[in-house]
Design a protein around this nucleic acid. Sequence first.
DNA 1: CGGGATCCGAGAAGATACTG
DNA 2: CAGTATCTTCTCGGATCCCG
Lengths: 110, 110
Amino acid sequence: MSKNTDFVTSCPLTKVQKIVGGKWKIVILWYLSVGPKRFGQIKRTFPDITQAMLTKQLRELEEDGFVHREVFKEIPPRVEYSLTATGENFVPILRSMYDWGEVHLAPAEQ
Amino acid sequence: MSKNTDFVTSCPLTKVQKIVGGKWKIVILWYLSVGPKRFGQIKRTFPDITQAMLTKQLRELEEDGFVHREVFKEIPPRVEYSLTATGENFVPILRSMYDWGEVHLAPAEQ
DNA sequence: CGGGATCCGAGAAGATACTG
DNA sequence: CAGTATCTTCTCGGATCCCG
């Protein structure tokens, strides 16, 4: 606010990018957009993410208010992740990005 | 294509994120959406980007077909950056992200 | 089962100096 | 003016081991 270059960091675009800029964030959100998922389900869906990374990204998404984490006190433990209202509101943007990518990025390019 | 986990890397969302995932990419695109800009203009607009980083990000955006680079053979040299048709097509998504951020991310949070 | 804690390498990002 | 070339720093993401 004091420095006049802060219009960059205060730009909504910058904030959004910081939140969903993680390597796996948007695909996780995309996956959760079809319904709540258990930790193991997500992990099996994205085998290339390590548990540690998956936990980290989910926690960050939780802190940013995109994802809700529900712990069921059972044996064995069970944890479900779902989108919050904020997260749901972001899905249309993901969808438009998805559609845009399909149209403008040739599958076999690069 | 061979491994069944490639649906992740082949996901349009993943591709889009790779392209605009750079720290400054989307704000640069956002800035260019108002019209062609010279290198020096961009640099002065974002003083926190080093020349090297700015050059790199612009070249990557150029390689990905989002930005057009026009070199004028003058003394002193002059280089103008502008959005390609693809880049222009992406602007509405930036705009929706911008609007979404304004609504859902409180200015004073965190 | 769903993590936490720690260590580590690669690549992103920053600082600085030089050039056509 | 608009870069290039290094060098350094730092953050992200990955691997591994341990825990309730």
